[in-house]
Amino acid sequence: MNDLLILAMVWLGFAVLIALTTRALLARLLTRLDRLSPARRSQWLWMICGAPAWGGLALCALCLTPSVLGFIWPGLDHCADHAHHAHLCLVHGTAAPLKSVWLAPLLLALAVVGWRLAGSTRQLLRARALLAALERTARRDAQSGAYLLDVEDTWAFVGGLLRQRVFVSNSLRQQLSPDQMALVLAHERAHVSRRDNLRRLTASLLSSFHLPSTRLLLLDRLELACEQACDDLTARSERERLQLAQTLLRLSLLVEDRSSPAAYAASAAVGHLEPRVQALLSPPTRPRDASAWSVAITCVLIALLTEPLHHATETLLNLLLD
């Protein structure tokens, strides 16, 4: 138990470090990401959203690597060389009790993480039940497979995480031309194929470790990247891109009263309107793949960093626990 708590402390420590580094580099990061295609940008933004959480775990795992190597090849075991301070070792344990002064904030931090996860699970279950209620009362359009809602407001959205469904209001169908409606449906289906709901939910949960202002900015950029990626999938030719831009503008003009809940969501659907329209007026960005060199350099860096990171963390841990 003591070892697990110490590992949790190391994980949270790394998470905070990554969150602060992200905050410091955010402006530069976002400028560089803007050069990528929306699809690639959304992948990077999702990873940055979760970087403190999964990066913290990855660094923890990296710190434990020497002990795993020592377990496989006993000749590499070096715990006996520095028995005088705390270890990060899966075989011999940490050999240092966690001080009560660290216990309270650590348990509090873990409780906050647990509480947020429980809250999100509750919200998720409620959203699932609401969507099921909506699906049961909606009519299914045999041609498009979309669920048609009788509501007066203009709606087009994807509901669900694993079993995703497209919902469209009849009033929207009446106000758009068949071509424009086909573009809206294709855009929503692009969200389905990209699993954007899952992407957004996990990003929202994992980004909890970031500073609030960083988190909001990252989620906002992720939202824009997802929308633009779907725009790119929906409209490939210049004509289709212009038609989609026209449809987006038409949709946003339909939402005149932005104070009602329905208008709130509809405006979200056409959110980031200007950057999306501007992007549609230009040719799509060509994706740049990561070169084999950059992957190889990253692997070498990780291998080189393992030992120093392991010892630096142990030293810091020793200072905290001593």
């Binding site: 919200q123 998720l124 957004r200 989620l219 939202e223 979200a268 959110g271 980031h272």
Partner: peptide, 10 residues
């Protein structure tokens, strides 16, 4: 709070 991105879009 489930999706702050939606709020920003609005």
């Amino acid at each position: 709070g489930a999706s702050d991105g939606v709020l920003s879009a609005f």
